[in-house]
């Protein structure tokens, strides 16, 4: 889409666009280019010179047991976060949609955890499950269950998943609720007159009509769990125990900053870049086609 009416001149528009182009160039394109460039080198231990290794870093990474494990961890983590945040949100949205009065109040009560930073959410959940002072872990102990996410892989994963999904429920609720309100009431009523009970109506009419929203939320939540959950993992587990919760973004950080392995970290950045690219393409494909029945 283009404007029919435009202004003349080319100096002014270049000036107007200059700040954004400048900032993007300095803080975006240059660093992104550096990441690609550095991924082709291995710096010597003193950081004085570096040796060109071509795709060596990538080859090394793909053969690295820990890196492959991190891929699997990321996949499990993002699937769990997506499910744990979307299913309760859908459930609550369906309930809120059934209410004529009061759904606005519930919406207000439910949306604001969205504003809580992932890192703060991490601290809150860490506090509840802390092995020494946590309330929940204490009661679990009373029931005979010895909670220890510091040592147990599965419990660590469970905790970071729940802490990451928690604030996200608000976000998904908002989108599901808006979509449910947009479902034409006449269709539901027609089905009800034909004798379809609530759950049948839900699965055969409402859910298919929600598919564009559901697909959109799937992509957005996967992107969220890939990139925005760093704070949760850093505050709760620090990637541990033994890398059990080291997702790809966390590994870029720990190899690049803690381990100072620039070549490998850059190669990981490039791989992540490709992953983001694929996710974006998926998102745009969806916008073009719109999932529908």
């Amino acid at each position: 889409m283009e404007k029919r009416v435009t202004f003349k001149g080319w100096m002014l528009p270049l000036l107007l666009i200059a700040p954004q182009v400048f900032i993007s160039a300095v803080f975006f394109f240059y660093p992104a280019g550096q990441a690609v460039w550095q991924s082709l080198f291995i710096p010597d231990p003193f950081g004085l010179s570096s040796q060109f290794v071509g795709l060596g870093n990538f080859e090394y990474l793909l053969n690295d047991r820990f890196y492959r494990a991190s891929f699997v961890t990321t996949a499990i983590f993002s699937i769990l976060v997506t499910l744990c945040s979307m299913i309760p949100a859908l459930f609550l949205a369906v309930l809120a949609d059934r209410l004529i009065k009061g759904s606005g109040t519930y919406r207000t009560l439910l949306i604001w955890p969205y504003a809580v930073a992932p890192a703060v959410a991490g601290v809150l959940w860490l506090f509840m499950f802390n092995t020494r002072v946590g309330v929940v872990s204490w009661y679990l102990g009373q029931l005979g269950y010895d909670w220890n996410h510091v040592l147990n892989d599965g419990e660590a994963m469970g905790l970071v998943v729940v802490a990451s999904a928690w604030g996200r429920i608000s976000y998904n609720f908002l989108f599901f609720f808006a979509a449910l309100q947009a479902v034409p009431k006449s269709v539901i009523e027609a089905a009800a007159i034909d004798g379809a009970h609530f759950w049948r109506r839900f699965f055969t009419i409402v859910l298919p009509l929600l598919s564009p929203t559901t697909f959109f939320l799937l992509v957005v939540n996967v992107v969220y769990s890939f990139f925005e959950t760093f704070g949760v993992i850093h505050t709760i587990t620090g990637g541990g125990p033994q890398q059990a919760t080291t997702i790809l973004v966390y590994k870029v950080f720990s190899d690049g900053f803690v381990g100072q392995d620039l070549g490998s970290s850059s190669a990981q950045s490039v791989i992540l870049l490709i992953v983001v690219g694929l996710l974006t393409v998926l998102q745009f494909k969806y916008i073009e086609k719109k999932v529908h029945y």
């Binding site: 404007k3 435009t6 202004f7 001149g9 080319w10 002014l12 528009p13 270049l14 666009i17 954004q20 182009v21 993007s24 803080f27 975006f28 394109f29 240059y30 660093p31 992104a32 550096q34 990441a35 550095q38 990139f227 925005e228 760093f230 973004v249 870029v252 950080f253 690049g256 900053f257 620039l262 970290s265 850059s266 950045s269 992540l272 870049l273 983001v276 690219g277 974006t280």
Partner: peptide
């Protein structure tokens, strides 16, 4: 509101920045 040389190029350059969260390019940034 303008037609100027390089307009499409700049548009696509800006568009590309949509794709890359800061988390991905932390070391060079």
């Amino acid at each position: 509101y303008f037609r100027f040389p390089g307009r499409n190029l700049f548009f696509w350059l800006i568009f590309l920045t949509l794709m890359l969260p800061v988390e991905v390019r932390i070391v060079p940034t």
